[in-house]
């Protein structure tokens, strides 16, 4: 069963359409929700949590109707908001335990669970410090901890790496990747940072202007087709390049011993031919893979396509 199903969903704020007739199913695992600011990502999350009612269309989260089961959805979902949101004057353990109690956990279990998730999120002994003394990275971690405390089946992370330095960002992404794989928790990461999505997600939805520009699993989105290859030679070899071009191959990019080539015009089994040409030129092929686009390329292509349409 898909984690989230959305059919012809439209959300309007007065006359302004924030989400425009979108339809998609999101699988388990880690899903990236990509898009520039104002694309409708946060509105979509708010709608999925029942904060903003859909103007038209339907949707389900973990099998629960978004229009009628807001509370039941929030029982099963954890939200890490984009904005800083802490309760001043209390330490992290009290804060996270309080979040657990709000989700219905008995106080004695909530405090134990708070310690567990804060340890998991890497706050360690800092969990006894007052929240207002935390750095940005620690605040992001505590937001993640309060979202996890009641054991949600789905985690919605809105810009989880906002304001983090490279080390903090890497640690947060490692946490997100860990939680979303093999822990029974599906994760939706909303971000405008393509590298973050590329790093942790298995599936992505690209939004623009309230619409879904493209969607699919990351590997197929990044794939550019079977004829574009990247090969790595033992050392730079002009003889190999010349032989390849003479057989109809096209060298798109050459960086030392790494070549990006287009084999569309080559007749026959091009993989076998490549190895034959390398042998004849006296070199070795040490790497051979289809060329993949970055998520940035995917995003720009989807946006261009959407604009053209």
């Amino acid at each position: 069963m898909p984690t989230i199903t959305v059919n012809n969903l439209t959300v309007k704020y007065g006359s302004r359409t924030a989400v425009d007739n979108v339809t998609f199913d999101l699988p388990d695992g880690c899903v990236g929700l990509l898009g520039p600011n104002g694309a409708g990502k946060t509105t979509l999350i708010k709608c999925l949590l029942g904060f903003v009612p859909p103007t038209t269309g339907t949707g389900t989260v973990l099998g629960l109707n978004i229009a009628t089961s807001g509370l039941a959805i929030r029982q099963k979902v954890g939200l890490m908001p984009e904005l800083d949101c802490h309760i001043p004057g209390i330490n992290a353990v009290t804060y996270v335990a309080y979040a657990g109690e709000l989700a219905g956990m008995p106080a004695s279990l909530a405090i134990g669970r708070a310690h567990e998730v804060l340890e998991y999120c890497g706050l360690g002994e800092a969990r006894y410090r007052h929240v207002e003394t935390y750095s940005t990275g620690m605040l992001q971690r505590i937001k993640l901890a309060q979202a996890l405390v009641h054991g949600p089946g789905l985690l919605l992370l809105d810009e989880p790496t906002n304001g983090l330095d490279p080390k903090g960002r890497e640690e947060m992404l490692t946490l997100v990747k860990d939680i979303s794989h093999g822990k029974g928790v599906s994760v939706i990461v909303s971000s405008h940072l393509m590298q973050d999505i590329e790093r942790v997600c298995d599936y992505a939805i690209v939004m623009r202007g309230g619409k879904v520009a493209t969607s699919g699993d990351i590997a197929s989105l990044r794939s550019v087709g079977g004829y574009h290859l990247e090969i790595e030679l033992r050392e730079p070899c002009p003889a190999f390049t010349e032989a390849l071009v003479s057989r109809g191959g096209q060298v798109l990019q050459e960086a030392g011993s790494i070549l990006q080539i287009d084999m569309q015009k080559v007749e026959g089994r091009y993989a076998t031919l490549l190895f034959q040409l390398a042998g004849a030129a006296g070199t070795q092929i040490r790497g051979f893979r289809p060329v993949q686009r970055t998520m940035e390329d995917v995003f720009l292509a989807a946006v261009d396509q959407e604009s053209a349409a």
Binding site: Q75, C85, I87
Partner: peptide, 18 residues
């Protein structure tokens, strides 16, 4: 007022309370 200032309402209401 304090909860609104520090956006804590988002934390409260993202839990299953009305």
């Amino acid at each position: 007022a304090g909860d609104q200032r520090v956006n804590a309402l988002m934390v409260y209401l993202s839990k299953p309370i009305t």
